[in-house]
Design a protein around this nucleic acid. Structure first.
Length: 205
DNA sequence: TGCCAGGCCCTCTTTAGGGCCTT
């Protein structure tokens, strides 16, 4: 019995840069817990990486060094976050990015998690091949997803990613007659060659 | 001073290069 795709934790990190291997750290985590397609819980916290972030990151995220100076440490926040996610499956937009930071931050505190990742970006590229762009902000506009106008903040991005994810999952039911798509099906869909997506979806009706 | 991410995906491909995404 595999988990339904509509039950997962959708998360988003704001970070000091693109690569934990180059010393970049998380500065904010935002997440929403979905159960059967409903948001049942949320998690959000800034975290102090222990060094100053660049002016680019301050401008990009709106998260300032002053804000971070009052925030709890990454260790403290990630320790609470690992309890929040438990063994739930995880979703993120361009999940390989968020997975790298989650893994790196949890390595530093000697903790882990039991769930698996799925990627809304890869699924979107397959289900909406006609879309010009699969950037999160562009997909929000493309699908008319409700939002509060805030982007590049962790909880706001996690909220719209969750809406996008549910829209993608539901489109399998509405447009492809796949009742209750499983999380595993979404993971497999994300790996399909674009040209065989139609065949794949027909096979899984 | 010079270095500078990683994975996916397409194509004028596979002995490679470059755009898209994430901050």
């Amino acid at each position: 019995m595999t988990a339904p795709a509509t039950s997962a934790i959708v998360l988003d990190f704001e970070t000091t840069g693109l690569s934990p291997n180059q010393g970049d750290r998380a500065i904010e985590i935002g997440a929403v817990k979905l159960e059967n397609g409903q948001v049942v819980d949320r998690f959000q916290s800034l975290m102090n990486p222990g060094f100053r972030v660049s002016s680019f990151i301050e401008g990009y995220t709106g998260i300032t060094n002053n804000m971070l100076s009052h925030a709890p440490s990454c260790d403290e926040v990630m320790s609470e976050f690992v309890d929040f996610i438990g063994d739930a499956n995880l979703v993120a937009h361009n999940a390989s990015f968020d997975k790298r930071f989650l893994d790196a931050e949890l390595d530093l505190i000697g903790k882990g998690y039991g769930g698996e990742f799925a990627c809304s970006l890869l699924v979107s590229r397959r289900l909406n091949q006609e879309a010009n762009s699969h950037k999160l902000g562009d997909l929000v506009a493309y699908h008319n997803i409700a939002n509060d106008g805030v982007f590049h903040r962790a909880l706001a991005d996690a909220e719209v990613t969750a809406s996008l994810w549910l829209l993608l999952v539901n489109s399998l039911t509405e447009n492809h007659a796949i009742a209750q798509p499983s999380f595993e099906l979404m993971q497999k869909l994300a790996k399909q060659p674009k040209a065989s997506v139609g065949k794949f979806l027909t096979k899984h009706k």
